[in-house]
Computed example of a mutant assay.
Amino acid sequence: MNPTHPTRPALVFIHGFLDGAAVWDDLVQHLGERASGALRVDLPGMGARAADPGPYSLDRFAADITTQIRALSRPVVLIGHSMGAQIAELVAVRLNEQVRGLVLLTPVPLRGTRLPAGAMRGFHALGGDPAAQRDLRRNLSVNLDDGQLERLGQLGDRVDANATGTFADLWNEGHPTGASPSRYLGPVLIIRGDGDTFSTAELISVGVTPRFRAPHVASIERAGHWPHVEQPAAIAHSVGSILANIERNVAGLNAPDVPVSPQGWTRAFGQKSADAFAETFSPDVMLEASVLAKPAVGIDQVKTVMTTASRIYESLSFTHEAHSGLRDYLEWEVQAFGGEQMRGITVLTKNPQGKIVHVAIHHRPLGGALRFSAELGHRLQGEVDPSLFYRSA
């Protein structure tokens, strides 16, 4: 561990189904010094511990990691992928205040996916079949090159064929505590790849986000089920934002800071769905923004603009919140256009029924705002009045 930051939360990475600790190599590299001394676990039966015998269970995995973390004697932030997200939830509850934040990456709901037996036969058949495992990874990813695919495949090759079906049943059947709201009350960041056909926006919005008090939600462009391998820079940006927010509170607090961001708004950005945005708006909602030449008015126009805007972002993190009466103030950081960074503030004004009646969005810097406006106009050509947008020369 880094001795210069004895109270800084250590990062703990928990891999998913048929993976191992090495799956985090690219993300750790992009996190740089912030990941120095991080704990990257290998779950029993996988990775470097593929020879560890059963029986296997989510509780065994959680107990194993809990023991390792307690030995650190310092606060931690848990980062769990897929099945590893289920385990991270269990660890967070066991360790309580030692866990200062929870990052769930393309998570499987703790209650399980409950896929039918017919669908699960394909996962059981992956054991001892390297070609099938690589086909699965290829089908559930968007941006894996051949080298990355092979590195992932080699992790799965280590797993005993007879254990593969057991691990699949674990994430499918889930854990009994997943049926009720989580007892972990600290900051939660949920990240999904926008091309992930397994941990879909619907699966997460129904099975994951409602269990937490006020989770942040981010969606990563051009990524599938392994966004930490497919788009490690974007994941590092999202993770770095929540870490910065957590670390500002570590020195003076004994318990983690609990965000209270408007869930409907942040969830809509995570889903990038017009219907999700519409659920948050009053019919007469007005949108004013530094990327618009004049206001967008009415639920149909505003949801169209916001949905398209959310799809331009490659990553989005809400970093701070403040609340006064019927107004919410959200600070955020984004990446777009191949890694260009922008920041801003959103002010949401609600009516007494909790519906948003006014949105004010302020982007910076100016160059990024003008480029964003022009891109919005291009994507919405023929759908929205073009005079709303900046047109580049």
Rank of each mutant, 00 (worst) to 15 (best):
A274S: 14
P6G: 02
L43I: 05
F372K: 04
S219L: 14
W265C: 05
P75H: 09
D42R: 02
L102A: 06
R60I: 00
H225E: 08
P75F: 08
A322Q: 09
W332E: 07
H124A: 07
F17V: 01
S282A: 15
D42S: 02
V23A: 05
I191T: 03
V217W: 15
G382P: 09
D157K: 06
G264W: 01
E247H: 04
E279Q: 13
L105A: 02
A131E: 14
G127L: 04
L144T: 04
I345P: 09
L39D: 07
A322G: 14
L292S: 00
Y313L: 12
P6Y: 14
A85D: 05
V142Q: 14
G354F: 08
S182E: 12
R40T: 12
F17S: 02
P3D: 11
Y184K: 05
R94Y: 07
V229M: 12
A374H: 08
Q335G: 09
R158C: 04
P176E: 11
G127F: 04
V229Y: 00
F167R: 04
M120G: 07
R74W: 06
L126F: 03
V23D: 04
P256K: 02
A309E: 04
T4V: 13
L39R: 09
P75D: 03
R327I: 14
P53Y: 00
I191Y: 00
N139S: 15
L370N: 08
L43F: 05
P210S: 10
R8C: 10
Q231M: 15
T349V: 11
H358T: 08
R267C: 11
V41G: 00
V93E: 11
T113S: 14
R121D: 08
G377V: 00
P232G: 05
V357H: 09
Y184P: 05
H320K: 12
Q263I: 13
A360R: 10
P232F: 05
G153C: 08
D328L: 11
V384K: 06
G47S: 00
N249A: 15
L380P: 06
